[in-house]
Amino acid sequence: MTEESFGDEIVAQMPYLRAFAISLCGSHSLADDLVQDTLVKAWSHADSFQPNTNLRAWLVTILRNTYFSSYRKRSREVQDSDNLLAQQIPVKGGQESALTLTDVQAALDKLAPEHKEILLMIGIAELSYEEAAEICGVAIGTVKSRLNRARAKLAEHLGLLTPSDIDTDPTVSDLAARRPSRAI
């Protein structure tokens, strides 16, 4: 891979990288600092990137490690003061239309860090379960389990369900009935 194409490839990943950072930090300004640090590290370690592998996963790995080593504490401090998603845009559709993007961010920020990061890796960065598992150093089953937890908690924090709806213990037949609902 030439340097030029490496740079171009990074540019192509920027929307996902920055979106992941904003959501992770809960702050635009902090996210931009984090992305900047990530880009500098990525370039200084460019030789260790293996061509024909997933550049986005590689960048997310760097960003995630940088976040947990240097940014997480700051992130908690600035979340309240930084007007993250100034646009109070109602999200589309149905009875949840009163929810805004800010509500979603607030709900995400309440998640356990290990749940939140998995949700964002799959949902925003669009990484595979395998990639998320490798980045976090856990088994794929753990990734799926954390995703389920994250979903349930997010729904709870958004007021889509009551706490009593969570932690049910579905039977196998329940599972079979619910599986097809994936396509929404």
Binding site: Q87, K92, V104, K144, N148, P170, L175, R178, S181, I184
Partner: peptide, 25 residues
Amino acid sequence: DGAMLDPKIQAQLGRVFRAYCDDLI
């Protein structure tokens, strides 16, 4: 076990989270 969500709630959550992700991206 991962917690299960009602299909309707899953669908709602999916729409809300997708809108959020799309906005950021």
